[in-house]
Design a protein around this nucleic acid. Structure first.
Length: 566
RNA sequence: CGGGGCGUAGCGCAGUUUGGUCAGCGCGCCUGCCUUGGGAGCAGGAGGUCGGCGGUUCAAAUCCGCCCGCCCCGACCA
């Protein structure tokens, strides 16, 4: 591709709409333009990158036994009514009607339609297992689109669905995908961590997220430095502390006028926050639930909701708190609470002689002990794990990090197959629901994540495997253009992808744009080294540079491309 | 949806408080000269419903009302 004829509109200044490096760089380097909030046009450079990412995904999906199909974007409402998700999906689903008034949606995901397809075609265990996938646009009217293509309302996703006869088959499919995902992300030049996650509203049990560590990431994870444990904080557990064996002291009431927050009470009473019991009230379908966590811990709402088997959890308002506890916010505690379900965290259960609100304005109780002074309905893990907590597997300290979720693998079970009556006959002639899994990769998000992991202050540094071109030839003036064209023809004719900067620009401009666009190999042709009969080669990553005679270029380029895995 | 900010030329911005030589600046773009190893210089030029609609006024980018769009922070997710 010659830059004079290519559509590569680079910008000197960053548009105000961008916040994070990947978004800024994609706009500046001429990869991306916004059409509406969360909806983008991919220009030629990013289209080339996307095609390469998709090709890597295809190869690994096919190698794992997947077969590619293409499902519709526009989907009829009936299927979504059958699984109940027409109602559950809410405002996040783009909905539309045809001329006859029939309802449709733009697919936010494709479980319904593929299950319906398989329901119609598969009736025997002999047809299973089946792994079907597509690479297709998804539409989600996000509450808040963010960070360019990181969280768009239209995005490209690879989604594979596995259909097996039983749990054992599902486990095998899941393992295949898990391994394929590791290969895919590593081939894309990404360092990812597979973390245990909460399955949320999609339903199902076992699930891992594949997370790219990055400061701008929206996912918060913890991982162990000593063993392989890694989890999203929504899911992460840690070893509960041992029960303190201190002698229980007599319960005592202390006056704490105006002391409401943990910090205030702790410093007023001269006690560490870890001695306090924090009592948080929630409303769950009309019922009031009190969650007890230690003063220095945070409640994990996802865990609490899961224990309660609900999606409707919301913090109680001040009025409810006053009615239930008899005291204003800041003074509630477990002792004497009535008509409230009490759920205590393990760390609270382990506490001896703790401090808690007295359910009375301006008062707290000292030497509170579980069992003697109050009895929780359940002791469970309901706290948010934090850096330094002991790993649930080996006890070493956990580390926290932020990351971008680029993929997720899910064991769905039979939720969709039962709702859509996708049954098969096993070898004994018994009818059973197909056991399903689903496996997504955010393709467009993966591109953004690659840039987040591979850039510097000058621009993008593409890994060879997904770079829009392998080589960028930069002739510095008119006199060098002939040699540049010769090299361009030579490399291009053997399948190497080359971008030639044939513009009538000054060297500085060309160098700046080359750094910005970030093609791995740059060949500079200028009078300086041409006087020695040489051209200059360098890697954008800075890992290698050297001068070569023009007839040595071809071999060196091939060698560099091969060594970088493309 | 709640909170914060923004909307003036392709991009980045000033001007808005205090209405009236304010339609401006830098970059980019076009023409010419000149220059050519890290976003050169000179000269000339094109480009704007000041987000939209309505109102106040002799007069509105500027004041008032309504609406639209965009960005950031929070609850959701690949």
């Amino acid at each position: 591709m010659r830059m004079t004829s290519g559509f590569i509109p680079t910008l000197r200044e960053t548009p105000a709409e961008a916040e994070i490096p990947s978004h800024k760089l994609m706009l500046r380097a001429g990869f991306l333009r916004r059409a509406a909030a969360g909806i983008y046009t991919y220009l030629p450079l990013s289209h080339r990158v996307l095609m390469k990412i998709m090709q890597i995904i295809r190869e690994e999906m096919n190698a794992a036994g997947g077969q590619e199909i293409l499902l519709p974007i526009v989907q009829p409402a009936e299927l979504w009514h059958a699984t109940g998700r027409w109602a559950d999906y809410g405002d996040e689903m783009f909905r539309l009607k045809d001329r006859h008034g029939r309802e449709f949606c733009l697919g936010p995901t494709h479980e319904e339609i593929i299950t319906s397809l398989v329901q119609g075609e598969v009736s025997s265990y002999r047809q299973l297992p089946l792994l079907l996938y597509q690479i297709q646009n998804k539409y989600r009217d996000e509450i808040r689109p963010r960070f360019g293509i990181m969280r768009g309302r239209e995005f490209i996703m690879k989604d594979l669905y596995s259909f097996d006869v039983d749990q054992q088959g599902l486990d095998e499919s899941y393992q295949k995908m898990y391994r394929a995902y590791n290969k895919i992300f590593s081939r894309c030049g990404l360092e990812t961590k597979a973390v245990l996650a909460d399955s949320g509203a999609i339903g199902g049990s076992l699930t891992h997220e594949f997370v790219v560590l990055a400061d701008c990431g929206e996912a918060i994870i913890v991982y162990c430095t000593e063993c392989d444990y890694a989890a999203n904080v929504e899911k992460a557990e840690c070893q509960p502390p041992l029960k303190e064996d201190a002698e229980p002291l007599p319960l005592e009431k202390a006056s704490t006028p105006g002391q409401k927050t943990i910090e205030q009470v702790a410093s007023f009473l001269g006690a560490a926050p870890s001695r306090l019991i924090k009592t948080l009230l929630y409303k769950n379908n009309g019922e009031v639930v009190a969650a007890l966590v230690r003063g220095d811990h945070e409640l994990n709402e996802v865990k609490l909701a899961r224990i309660l088997g609900t999606l409707e959890l919301e913090p109680a308002d001040e009025e409810t708190i006053l009615r239930v506890t008899g005291a204003p916010v800041g003074y509630c505690g477990p002792v004497g609470l009535k008509n409230v379900r009490l759920i205590a965290d393990h760390a609270v259960a382990a506490l001896a002689n703790g401090v808690a609100g007295a359910n009375e304005e301006d008062a707290h109780l000292l030497n509170v002990n579980m069992g003697r002074d109050y009895q929780p309905d359940m002791v469970a893990d309901i706290r948010l794990v934090k850096t330094g907590d002991p790993c649930p597997q080996c006890g070493s300290a956990l580390l926290g990090a932020r990351g971008i979720e680029v993929g997720q693998v899910f064991q769905l079970g039979t939720k969709y197959s039962e709702a859509l009556r996708a049954y098969f006959l096993d070898e004994k002639g018994e009818q059973k629901p197909i056991v399903m899994g689903c496996y997504g990769i955010g393709v467009t998000r993966t591109m953004a994540a690659i840039i987040e992991q591979h850039h510097d202050e000058h621009g993008i540094i593409w890994p060879m495997s997904v770079a829009p071109f392998h080589v960028h030839i930069v002739p510095l003036g008119d006199k060098e253009l002939t040699l540049a064209e010769e090299l361009y023809d030579q490399l291009t004719s053997s399948g190497i992808e080359v971008l030639l900067d044939d513009r009538d620009e000054r060297p500085g401009v060309k160098f700046k744009d080359a750094d910005l666009i970030g093609i791995p190999i740059r060949i500079t042709i200028g009078a300086r080294s041409l006087s020695e009969g040489k051209v200059e080669l360098r890697l954008r990553s800075g890992e290698w540079e050297g001068k070569l005679a023009p007839d040595e270029v071809y071999d060196k380029v091939r060698e560099l491309i091969a060594s970088k895995g493309a």
